[in-house]
Structure formats: structure tokens, C-alpha cells
Amino acid sequence: MAVDRALETKYRIAETAMALFLEQGYESVTVEAVADASRVSRRTVFRHFDGKDELAFPDHSARLDLLSRNLVAPSGGRTAVDVVIAATEAVLLDFLSRPELVLRRYRLTRLVPELRRREVLEHERYVAMTRAYLRDHLPADSPPFLPMALAALIDAMHRSALGDFARSDGTTDAFAELKDGMEWIHRTLAADPATGSPLLLAVLPDTAAVRQSLSALRAEAKDLL
């Protein structure tokens, strides 16, 4: 089909561009060089991408559409949180369908600040969609901070699983890690606030030592909840 061929062309251009960026440096590679290496015209590159900084993100628009479709689908009696969790799981599976793209982009965004900033902006669009859904579908008497807090928490589980996958060069089971995180959210939300302990939220640096400590803490917390 023509649509499939166009999509494969888009991914081929993106993969070629990222390979060139890693080999020659982002600033040194021109759109013309990407077009030549991809064996397409410059016009074809710009038919698929608005600019050079989009070349590392061929999948984000389609993935936002995937998230949107999952959020607007009939809930089937599920809670708003369960709908967002299921949508987030679908998004992660879509990421993992092209693991080499995930790994190559991870390496690239750690080397090129411009692409890292673009990644953060793209990511915020996901969070904004889930936050808006929760704001519109949580019970009317929910605290006003809850949509933002839950969207951030669910997103943190997703980013942790995908980040661990990328840092391990694709050796971790990202989906299993995400499922564990979502189960922790379920247990936390099900706890009786009158008898349960208060939650402690913290912002920590993303270092190997912190990740190791958090892994140990998560194992301990799993037994407590």
C-alpha cells in the first residue's frame, strides 16, 4: 500500500539521519546529506519532516494519535486511571516495536542538547493529553491537584521503564517493569487513607547510584503495600 511505503520511507530517512548524526556529529550533517544517503530528494525529506530537529522523531505524531485513540475509546466500565494506564501501556508497546530506533535515539539525545530539548517538548505533549483526560473523567469531588499528580506518576513509571531499557541497551523487560509500576499505583490508590501511611514524593538526580538505591527501595516497598 502507498501509505505503508510512505511510512517506511519516513523511517528509513530518520534511521539514516540518526546514523549520520552519530557518525559525523549533528551540526556537521545537512538535510541534503541525509537526502543523498537515503536516496531521496530534499523535497521528500521535507514532505515527512518539518525540520532537521524532527528527523530523530519519526514516530511521535503517530504515537500521539495512538494515545488519543486509546483515551477516547469506550471505557468499558474502567476507571479513568485504568484507561490512562492501558493507553500508556499501548504507547510503550509501540515504542518497543522498533527497539533499535529507541536505542539509537537515546544515544543521540544524550549527545545533542537540541534534540534532548525537542524530546522533552514532545514528551510534554503526552503528559498534557493524559492530564486533560484525567481532569475531565475523574470523579467531580476529586482534589484539583489529582489529575496532574496522577498523570505525572503514571508518566514516571513509563519513563522509568523505557529509560532502563535504553540504558541497558535493550536487555531489560520494559513492559514487565511498567506493569509492576502500574500495579504499585493500583495498590497505592486502593490503600485506605485513614489507616495508610502518607506518600513521600521526591525529585532525585538520575545517576547509577540513585537508580540502584531506588531499585532496592522499590523491592522493599512492594512487600509493604
Rank of each mutant, 00 (worst) to 15 (best):
S75P: 07
S75H: 13
S75F: 09
G76K: 08
G76D: 05
G77A: 14
G77D: 09
G77M: 12
G77Q: 14
R78V: 04
T79D: 01
T79L: 02
A80Y: 10
A80R: 10
A80M: 14
A80N: 13
V81M: 07
D82L: 11
D82A: 15
V83E: 02
V83A: 06
V83G: 03
V83L: 05
V84W: 00
V84M: 09
I85A: 15
I85Y: 00
I85N: 00
A86W: 05
A87R: 02
A87N: 07
T88M: 12
E89G: 07
A90K: 11
A90S: 12
A90C: 11
V91K: 09
V91D: 01
L92P: 04
L93M: 05
L93A: 05
D94Y: 01
D94A: 10
D94R: 11
D94F: 00
F95R: 01
F95T: 00
L96W: 04
L96D: 10
S97K: 08
S97V: 06
S97E: 12
R98N: 11
R98W: 11
R98I: 11
R98Q: 13
P99H: 07
P99F: 14
P99Y: 08
P99K: 09
E100F: 10
L101P: 00
L101H: 13
L101V: 06
V102L: 14
L103I: 09
L103T: 08
R104Q: 13
R104G: 02
R105E: 03
R105C: 07
Y106C: 05
